[in-house]
Design a protein around this nucleic acid. Structure first.
Lengths: 190, 190
DNA sequence: ACAAAAGTGTTCCCGTTACACCCATGA
DNA sequence: TCATGGGTGTAACGGGAACACTTTTGT
């Protein structure tokens, strides 16, 4: 968002006396996007003295994954927010660039350990869509055959009988994240 | 430490209005141990509402590596502290067990990426000592030959001509961490 | 017919692991 | 001489990366 300080910044809020950090993060996110029950992880606490020229502020950054498709754009305009591609990220206010950097490396570290990707996809998705999510998060391209080989080994990504005819002439099989199978399996490694 | 609540807890302190989180962590550690310029990393912020039954407290946990040999034991008694082996760690106050767990997994994740180990060793050390540090942090035993093979590839761990005659009859070559070489090398991976 | 995306196996390479014996020395 | 820890090489394995062509169908 643009708070009028001459630099863009991440959106934030204050923690209420009777809510946890996690609750506060979800509250802020919900107010901003209308979305709830979302993948969200703490990035870390930022506590340099002069991070905010006004008063002393300690911030705890959180990282959430939301699908822009689910997002009500009128909220964006209402709050003066902009979506920015990571490779076009400008210099941000204070230490916010560090927050983004830390969040991103956390995402990359977790993508093979936690079912992140499904927060960015509709309930039914094609393997190509899933691969695009991986490539977006990792920042490089993946070999299609190797990727599909890996996915096939994961038992909580289920193939359905449905065919998506929108994205290609031939049609692509649609897959589904089976959260029941995921919860049952103690072995992570996506 | 034992704050008299009936449960052991980690040691903490409050952040001053004119010091950063990092500075506060170092200050507390120094007051407690006399040690400074120590490897220290933030573990995370802990913000549940009822973590402290008294008043609302948000804690930011830090993890430091200190060599007990460097530690003045009179400080320990003065503050009522105890060193506890991880496998004997009791149930701690509030969410402090989570802090320890998170700190440990962070250490394990970083041991191959950052020169952690040297904070736990004297300036000159034998390969067996270094291996013991690895085993202590990772929590399992490592094959001696494979370990030494890996270490040999690392150019910022230097063999010296000095021989340690204390730990064995035969004597073991002593090694040194070359911080100059480390800073010069952009490739991490210890 | 052709354009556009879906789908499919094999080979190679490299890093990790497993594994056992001789050496030097002080007591 | 023997007990103690120091020091060394090789073979098997497995996961990851590279790589190209056929299929389906709407236009």
């Amino acid at each position: 968002m643009d708070p009028g300080r001459g630099e863009w910044s991440l959106y934030g809020g204050f923690v209420g006396a009777d809510e946890s950090l996690t609750d506060a993060a979800h509250r802020v996110l919900k107010g901003l996007t209308g979305l709830d029950k979302i993948y969200m992880r703490q990035v870390g606490a930022f506590g340099d003295i002069d991070r905010d020229p006004g008063e002393r502020v300690i911030s705890v950054a959180y990282c959430a994954l939301i699908n822009v498709k689910d997002y009500d754009d009128s909220l964006r305009e209402k709050f003066g927010l902009e979506w920015v591609p990571l490779d076009k990220l400008p210099k941000l206010y204070s230490d916010h660039n560090t927050m983004v950097k830390d969040a991103l490396s956390m995402l990359r570290r977790h993508i093979n350990t936690e079912p992140l990707s499904f927060n960015l996809l509709p309930p039914l998705f094609t393997l190509t869509q899933l691969q695009h999510v991986y490539e977006a998060i990792l920042g490089y391209e993946i070999d299609k055959r190797n990727f599909r080989k890996r996915i096939k080994q994961i038992d909580f990504i289920e193939k359905t009988n449905l065919i998506d005819k929108l994205s290609s002439r031939r049609g692509a099989a649609m897959y589904r994240f089976n959260s029941r199978a995921y919860d049952a399996a103690p072995e992570f490694k996506l």
